[in-house]
Amino acid sequence: MTTFKLGFIINPIAGIGGSVALKGSDGMAMHALALGAKPQANARAKLALEILLPYQDEIVIYTANEQMGEHCARELGFNVEVLYQAKHKHTQSDDSQLAAQALLAHGVDIILFAGGDGTARDIANVVTNDDDYQQVPVLGIPAGCKIHSGVYAITPKAAGRVIELMVTKELVTLTTGDVMDIDENLFRQGIVKAKRYSEMKIPCELRYVQAVKSGGKESDEFVLQDIAATVIEEMADYENRQFIIGSGSTTAFLMSELSLDNTLLGVDIVCEQSLIAADVTETELYQAITDFQGISKLVITLIGGQGHVFGRGNQQLSPRIIRFILAQPGGRDNIIIIATKTKLAALANRPLISDTGDSELDQQLSGFMQITTGYKDQVLYPLASPQ
């Protein structure tokens, strides 16, 4: 029996800034930890490896020490060989790169890594700069605040499914995926400036691998005005309601129609059409909804080209917050999803995705959701839990 050699790297601090509204983790890990952020990358990587548990006897996992992969793989009972020892207590960019070099030198069949766009760039810096390594495929487990790159699976479990296909010797097409990243300093100022840095070879299973995020603002201003008018009417029709406004250009247009300042890449709270709190952290948001003597509603949009409504760029909307919103009178109707039909059509019939990190909650959210696409115009569109 041929042993599958799985290279495995976790960036333990990937996405750590999301829940505390830092919009990213590059150079911000210590600040995020001081604000009370909890690392989530290992938990998300575990979801991917759990898919491979039936094939433990056929896999050897080559990885880095402790939180960079060793602990996660050993806890699940895999056969593990540690090829790299992290240089820093809180891992840095060079740890990801040196770990990748060690795995590639050992001849792994694929590198499976957990992180965000910064981690993808680190892996690409190694893979693309050495002719001997450029043909080794990679696949990302989404764990960062921002996932613009096309080298990631749509969810952690989806990443595991792709590796499963390879382990069981299914025919898996290889293609190239773009490595994208943005300037996090501009990102924290509400400016999205994405750039293509390179590309890497990836196993291409369209059910499981995400598209590169579509950038830019909606061009049809009249449609956005109609969508905003519908939400604003709902805000005016009810007392004792507060509205949590998620990130994105579609929700930013709503805020501009309300003549309110907006955190383009954060979460704001509006009550009686006034801004109550801006750019809140997960802890601040939970306090706000539990203290409020009324109903809290959530207004969100989807990531263009990918379809995620939870789990990308809005980690402040944690499972406990979503559960609280669902438990209020109105249930699922307390989640207001807004998007143009053009944005939905770009998904090419793929479902919306909830990737909260809580599989039970994702399953609870799955099914058809009402999407506000114009003035008092809604469509039903499927939302799926990670597979």
Rank of each mutant, 00 (worst) to 15 (best):
G177N: 07
L171K: 15
I61F: 13
T91Y: 02
T290P: 00
I337P: 02
Q134C: 13
T342D: 11
Q242I: 13
I163P: 09
T230E: 09
Q135D: 13
A194G: 11
Q101P: 00
I353G: 04
D122W: 02
A278V: 00
Y55Q: 04
V162N: 04
G24T: 09
T155H: 08
L260N: 12
F324S: 14
P39F: 11
E257R: 14
K146H: 01
M200Q: 06
E282A: 15
G216E: 10
N129G: 13
D355F: 03
R44L: 13
D178C: 03
P12D: 04
A86L: 00
L103R: 06
I338C: 07
E360M: 06
L285V: 01
I244Y: 01
L174K: 08
T281Q: 03
G357R: 06
K38Y: 01
V267H: 01
V379N: 01
D94M: 12
S25Q: 08
T119C: 04
Y84Q: 07
I111P: 12
L265V: 12
I10H: 05
A105H: 09
L112Q: 07
D95C: 10
A41P: 10
F8Q: 05
A45W: 05
A346S: 15
R207D: 15
V108R: 05
A158L: 06
E170M: 10
D183F: 10
S359L: 13
P142C: 01
Q273T: 01
I182R: 10
V60A: 11
C145Y: 13
F310A: 03
L104G: 03
Q97Y: 04
Q287G: 08
I353W: 01
L186T: 07
D220M: 04
V231E: 06
A29W: 09
F292G: 03
A29D: 13
L35A: 14
P329F: 12
R188G: 07
A48I: 09
R350E: 13
A288W: 04
P156D: 00
G116Y: 09
K157V: 05
V231D: 08
Q225T: 11
T176K: 14
L265Q: 02
D57Q: 13
T175P: 03
D333A: 14
H90V: 12
Q189M: 13
G367D: 12
R121Q: 15
R312P: 04
R320N: 14
L186F: 07
T63D: 07
A345L: 08
K46M: 12
V280P: 03
I338M: 13
Q363G: 04
D178L: 13
A277S: 14
L165T: 08
A236Y: 06
I111N: 08
D362I: 00
T168S: 09
L365Q: 10
V209C: 06
N334F: 04
E233I: 00
S366F: 01
A64F: 09
R188L: 02
S247H: 09
E199A: 14
E218P: 08
Q328L: 10
A105T: 10
T263N: 11
E164I: 04
M166L: 15
F368Q: 00
G116C: 03
A288M: 05
H88N: 15
V299W: 01
